[in-house]
Design a binder for these strands. Structure first.
Length: 113
DNA sequence: CACTTGACGTCGT
DNA sequence: GACGACGCCAAGT
């Protein structure tokens, strides 16, 4: 099956993730809602974990849960890497939580999927 | 093939 | 407002 033209859940998730502006973050639920599956937020997170298997550079570090916590930091190999990447984009992180989450939050719903 | 796990979110207490 | 339970869907065991 051809993944390049795959309109499946995963592909949509990856497309959204790649379009997250630098210095911004979003939540799994927001992505799920944006692609039309608001109740499949878990699948978004699961897709992110699998995203490392894809050659495409998915900025998975820009995706956190609804409260801005770095719930998936462990998937980066080094648990501190996710926070490092966020701070690298001028996103303040403290205690595995994005500070001023609302301020840096980017809603993918505007992509009008 | 049935059960458990998981980078979540919403609702009820 | 913190904590627990349930629902969601796919993959791993």
């Amino acid at each position: 099956m051809n993944m390049s033209q795959d309109d499946s859940f995963f592909n949509k998730v990856f497309q959204v993730c790649k379009q997250i502006p630098k210095g911004k973050v979003t939540s799994y639920g927001a992505i799920a809602k944006a692609i039309g599956s608001p109740q499949s937020a878990r699948m978004v997170g699961w897709a992110m974990n699998k995203s490392f298997s894809f050659e495409e550079s998915i900025p998975a570090h820009r995706v956190v849960n609804r409260i801005g916590m770095l719930s998936g930091k462990k998937a980066f190999g080094n648990p501190n890497l996710m926070q490092q990447l966020l701070e690298q984009e001028s996103i303040p992180v403290k205690d595995d939580q994005v500070q001023d989450f609302e301020k840096y939050f980017w809603d993918p719903i505007m992509l009008d999927f």
